[in-house]
Nucleic acid binder design. Structure first.
Lengths: 150, 150
DNA sequence: TTAGGTGCAAACGGTTTGCAGGCCT
DNA sequence: AGGCCTGCAAACCGTTTGCACCTAA
């Protein structure tokens, strides 16, 4: 945790209980929206405010301790960078979310570099589409689909 | 325009002036948010309501006449499907938006099909990252960056 | 001691909804 | 005539902000 404190200090910031709690909550949750992080934090301390969660997710991301991606129309989802880097696949029919190894992106990354001088942010990438094997599930998960209708 | 009316009727809907105006506005604008579409529509008829724009962008997308992608944190951007299919590149430094030919995605699409049984929605894809040649521009476009900080 | 951080409540911005009336077919 | 569609205004929901107080360093 001293590494965490160091990073904070190096950027002219302070260590606070809230920051520890929020970082640990993100680690525990895997993928979570600010609201879900807030709920998780509150299990340990009911006093933490939602706006504090927002402010600190931003700080933690600046420090490179968490990342976010957009898996739904609604809120972004945050995850700790201790997970290996990955990108996401989202099926609009069944709502399944897959984490995919970035090797699959190598040709794309090379092509974009070569032809566009562009370096993609792989960890932020979200690919919407459909599982070929799940059209029969369409409509089953109506509520989740609603929020996936990107 | 009769093709448009047909599609509407086939899906049990009606042709209205609003729908024509909205579709034409999207065609004219290239990429535009609901608000921008609204503004453009109002140039021809000041009476059209923003909620009508929202409702009909949804209808037009259902009919396959427009598509949307998420180029910023804020609103989605709509474009007519008469443009050739493409995906987007967004530079977080300079805010540049590039439209890219989907051939670059062929290896990825094949890989995802083979290894995940997944069919990506190529036209919806947005790749965030950085132009290699523009780090010096960082901070220049502060306002745009703000809205690109996905 | 003093900046940075927090909680609270209000503001914000984009989007959605309920309803009464209007108009396409 | 009937049902889809619209305008309007209010509700919504996630996020941001101003401010007074607190606290880490």
């Amino acid at each position: 945790m001293t590494e965490f404190a160091d990073r904070l200090h190096r950027s002219g910031r302070r260590m606070t209980p809230q920051r520890e709690l929020i970082l640990r909550a993100v680690d525990r949750l895997g993928h979570a929206t600010p609201d879900e992080v807030h709920a998780e934090v509150r299990k340990e301390s009911a006093a933490v405010n939602l706006s504090t969660v927002y402010r600190n997710l931003e700080v933690l991301e600046e420090l490179g301790l968490v990342r976010h991606a957009h898996l739904s129309d609604r809120s972004p989802t945050y995850h700790s960078i201790s997970d290996h880097e990955h990108f996401h696949l989202i099926c609009r029919n069944c709502g399944r979310v897959d984490s995919v190894d970035p090797v699959l992106l190598v040709p794309l990354v090379e092509g974009l570099g070569r032809e566009y001088g562009f370096v993609p942010d792989v960890g932020h990438l979200t690919v919407f589409g459909a599982c070929v094997s799940c059209p029969e599930h369409a409509g089953e998960h109506t509520h989740e689909r609603r929020t996936l209708e990107q």
